[in-house]
Nucleic acid binder design. Structure first.
Lengths: 109, 109
DNA sequence: TGCAAATTTAACCGATTGGTTGAAGATGTG
DNA sequence: CACATCTTCAACCAATCGGTTAAATTTGCA
């Protein structure tokens, strides 16, 4: 399971975020992922390795071609982590804590 | 306005995420932020600079003491970006609960 | 077989990161 | 004023990052 560290670090690069956007459309071969970028194929290959070890994509080789597939589930932990901050004004935090306490008996402040 | 790059990069470090967690409780002075960590005050000061330039916290000096305050709005852009991937529109309380268990084992607060 | 295509590996590079230590600034207090 | 407290700055260090080029590897095909 990839850590929050590796997920956030993977998302911190604009090239990698653009790759994820592209893969939202469809699965792609490495060469096709690299095409719009003005950098070497080797650099894109490294970016794809980073995304894979963060669990954000998976890669499957069929013949000569390695297909890249988005794995959006990997964003769940990161998204939950962020939204716990982003919405703490919108939701009633005291009520939320009360909820947690009810759902997790023994969890004290 | 801080970029997605700097926000995600700031979140990619566990010390900085722990600092944000602490600031969820209340505003804190730099020295108090540093107290639980086994690293120098200068290192924490650098982490706080990173968080500030990402817009995730603000710092205000009153007297000798510089107070650190969480700025959760800075997560909105990043959150919106992640929402473009679909299934993370709302806070899922069950997922949040599971996440807390994983990130802070035995320490619900 | 022999060549072209798809992708990774290796070696290298400069910039950045996350940490250290020690000194230096600010600012309250006796 | 003298001194302690709060925080940053400066210099340094090893490790990592994002990129390069060139060579190697794996696979498909005429």
């Amino acid at each position: 399971m990839a850590s929050l560290d590796t997920v956030f670090a993977a998302l911190a690069d604009p090239t990698r975020r653009a790759i994820l956007q592209m893969l939202l459309e469809d699965d792609m071969a490495v060469t096709d992922v690299a095409e719009p970028f003005e950098m070497s194929l080797a650099a894109i290959s490294k970016h794809l390795t980073v995304l894979t070890s963060a669990g954000l994509i998976s890669q499957e080789k069929r013949g000569r071609v390695k297909w890249c597939k988005l794995e959006p589930d990997a964003l769940r932990d990161a998204s939950v982590w962020m939204q716990s901050f982003g919405q703490f004004e919108a939701v009633n935090l005291d009520a939320f804590e009360a909820f947690l306490e009810k759902e997790l008996p023994g969890a004290q402040d």
